[in-house]
């Protein structure tokens, strides 16, 4: 049984390369039982979408001054 530490490292790698079937299974089984890692999984994907959103937001700002 892999630890949360190992599973999250795999989840991260899975965002940038194709994991083996064994690795994907290990993640799948683990997150079924572990809500923290399940949250990490969805939040790491969220962080990727946020990065894209940040660029889009930067692009669409009328000028580069942020209101304070």
């Amino acid at each position: 049984m892999r630890s949360c530490r190992d599973i999250t490292a795999l989840v991260s790698q899975g965002l940038d390369k194709k994991l083996s079937l064994g690795e994907r299974l290990a993640i799948g089984l683990h997150v079924m039982m572990c809500s923290s890692c399940r949250n990490f999984q969805s939040q790491s994907q969220f962080i990727r979408r946020a990065a894209k959103g940040y660029i889009k937001n930067l692009h669409h700002q009328p000028d580069n001054k942020t209101e304070t």
């Binding site: 949360c4 890692c37 949250n39 990490f40 939040q43 946020a50 959103g53 209101e67």
Partner: peptide, 26 residues
Amino acid sequence: GHWNGGPSTWNDPEAAFKQQEFWTIY
């Protein structure tokens, strides 16, 4: 190897994208 604390659940995270303040924090 267990979480120390660990991620909590975020409600409707995408809603943050509509708020300028979120991007400042990002």
